[in-house]
Nucleic acid binder design. Structure first.
Lengths: 229, 229
DNA sequence: CCGGTTCAGTACTGGACCGTACAGTACTCG
DNA sequence: CGAGTACTGTACGGTCCAGTACTGAACCGG
């Protein structure tokens, strides 16, 4: 039963990612309705939360009958997980590519700062923050989903960083004996405080770019102080 | 209106803290009922969340009529904020004292590791984690409460750490020019990854004490590499 | 021990919302 | 163009829950 629900998650996620990617191409009417439901539901879930969003509302915003919603998604949870896993994949990829590029850096310090700034900017986007909060909020009701998110977003990113740091170590640019630990330290030196604050004060725009840059630079400085050969 | 609701929060918090502190002393019947409601509601809110807890349930667990609940607390939100601010004060104090003691350390490295371990252990207690998740989950509905929690828990702790680091700097034991930034870095080197993971996988007991200690020690090592004179 | 207050128990109101049913309409494809 | 499918609109059943109303009983100060 758990496995069945799980494979359903996977399918839904793949569908979501696919439809999101090709936006509104040569799709039949059904497909267009489906994407309309997905975008409307994404918007509403991210803005009003899971409990705060009703299926009637989703149908209304998507300009679709409620019955059509239920024809495409068995129930509210299925729709929700489809959206979470879809947006997850959509936002995660670009940064992983940036991490991979860092392996070949010619100027570690500069590029590491740039990577860190991009990392922070990526995770501090309101949509990403809202998604994070949403999943944390529903982690009791949907533990499987929360775990999947954790594995496919933060953990995956840190693993990629670790891979990168290991590579840099073989090039003699870093001196790390435990790349995974170093990656975690790097991530939370850069993200920790802003992310924590944002989880509580999402509405607050108080953090300006300048602060973020200063914070990021200081974090990288500490990291390099510990791991520069 | 905002100010009024705010002062109500304050009063409720003070009441809660007071009643919690003197446990079950020489209180009149009303007071005993009130504490009963608070403990029952705390238990239920922390275990089942805000939406997952009904006022009927609270009354039932507290062995009290629903009307009595409403006589003591105007509505569900008021009761909730009273509990959050009460438990906040109850859990925050001990660690702040430990931070203060570090100012007079004779062996910085050892004591810093010990402090870090205590910090992590304190924040990884299930009750604290649940409270954190609860507040994050309701941050949209109760932004004022979320902000208050942030200021009185994480921010306050980091400020205390900064104060301590500044003191250690004057003693020549650390070399910090921005104590607040250093405190934030210390905090998230130690807490960041375990806390982030726990927010998503609360049920998962996967993190053992040994892992925590190794993680903490590594974090302190990085911190000292950057800030040792 | 007595008069007023407080409380338990319970029932009720009003509303939100998930998921389904159904009858009629629009679309698609052979 | 016609058969079959998908969609609309609306209404409905069932459930849950916050907050109120009311009655009789327990408590407490004087």
């Amino acid at each position: 039963m758990a496995a069945e629900s799980w494979s359903e998650h996977r399918r839904a996620a793949i569908d979501a990612a696919a439809t999101e990617l090709c936006e509104q191409a040569t799709d039949s009417r059904s497909e267009r309705k489906r994407t309309g439901i997905l975008t409307a539901a994404t918007e509403l879930f991210l803005r009003n939360g899971y409990q705060g969003t009703s299926m009637d509302e989703i149908a209304s915003v998507a300009s679709v009958s409620k019955q059509t919603v239920y024809k495409n998604f068995a129930d509210k949870q299925t729709l929700f997980t489809a959206i979470v896993l879809g947006t997850l994949d959509r936002f995660g990829e670009p940064f992983l590519a940036a991490v991979d590029r860092l392996k070949d850096t010619e100027n570690l310090e500069t590029d590491l700062v740039e990577l860190a700034r991009g990392y922070l900017a990526a995770i501090m986007r309101p949509q990403v923050l809202r998604l994070r909060r949403l999943i944390i909020a529903e982690a009791d009701r949907l533990p499987e989903l929360a775990r999947t998110y954790y594995e496919r977003a933060p953990e995956r990113t840190i693993a990629a960083l670790a891979d990168c740091f290991a590579q840099l170590a073989t090039r003699g640019l870093l001196s790390v004996d435990d790349p995974l630990a170093a990656a975690g330290q790097f991530a939370f030196l850069v993200l920790g405080q802003p992310l924590d604050r944002a989880l509580f004060c999402l509405s607050d725009k108080g953090f300006r770019e300048a602060d973020h840059n200063a914070h990021t630079d200081a974090g990288v400085r500490v990291f390099l102080a510990a791991y520069r050969p």
